[in-house]
Amino acid sequence: MSDYTIAELMSVCMAKEVRDGDLLVQGLYSPMVMVGCWLAKRTHAPHAVIFNVSEGIEGRPRYLPYSTAEPELARDCVAFPDFLHVGELAARGRLDLVFLSAAQVDMYGNTNLSVIGDYCHPKVRLPGGAATTYFFGMAKRSVIWIVRQSRKSFVEKVDFITGVGYLDGPGAREKAGLRWGGPVRVITNLGVYSFDEESKRMKLDSRHPGVSVEEILENTGFELILPPEVPETPPPTQEQLRLIREMDPNGVRELEFKKEV
């Protein structure tokens, strides 16, 4: 048995996506992203600016709250640059990184948070993408996370494009009118993925400890690009685990694995 949870591993994978000095957005109901971003800020990226839904920047939360819109995240912050500021920064090409989840993602990194089935007569009406449509268009780097990778969530074609990935391949974003950005990483409960530079198709970067390539393929509904050798995702270090558990004493990071879907 490992001494860490899958939520802790995924949080660490998310932390690695943060570069020092990044302006980044952490959205609503994103517990692992919250943990990952604050971990990055406490370790390798002290100058990252985390815009969260509470709108306070450089806050000093005593603990990471259940909802990312809760006031605790803004405790003793330096200012409240509201959502209009973040939208403005993004429009000017200054937003470096966003993390957004999805009910479905396809091989080109397009995501769906709107409907399963037909848009006007949906089988399931999902919550909607919040800022996804805008930030997937405007951030320099987008990271997608999926809590339960399966053929239902890793699909050939999403039912509805809420978040724009590479659409149907190279050059499609530019043709649609987007001048920069695109998804750079997908982090799931089974592995870590990125996108092939030329084809813009999803490729496997690493499998999590204990997960086989076969298991990943069984839970992927499209043709995944496989490297000749698939490395294992490095497990969290003891120091990372200590910091995570210190920042998140209530175990908010585990929430998405507890919820019924």
């Binding site: 993004a90 429009a91 709107s114 848009y119 993408g129 449509t133 805008y134 930030f135 997937f136 268009g137 405007m138 509805f160 494009i161 809420t162 978040g163 724009v164 659409l167 499609a172 974003r173 649609a176 009118g177 987007l178």
Partner: peptide, 13 residues
């Protein structure tokens, strides 16, 4: 005007 909505089905519908 707003930027960044292009390519999505949110924009299309």
């Amino acid at each position: 005007p707003v930027k960044g909505m292009f390519g999505s089905d949110v924009f299309r519908v």
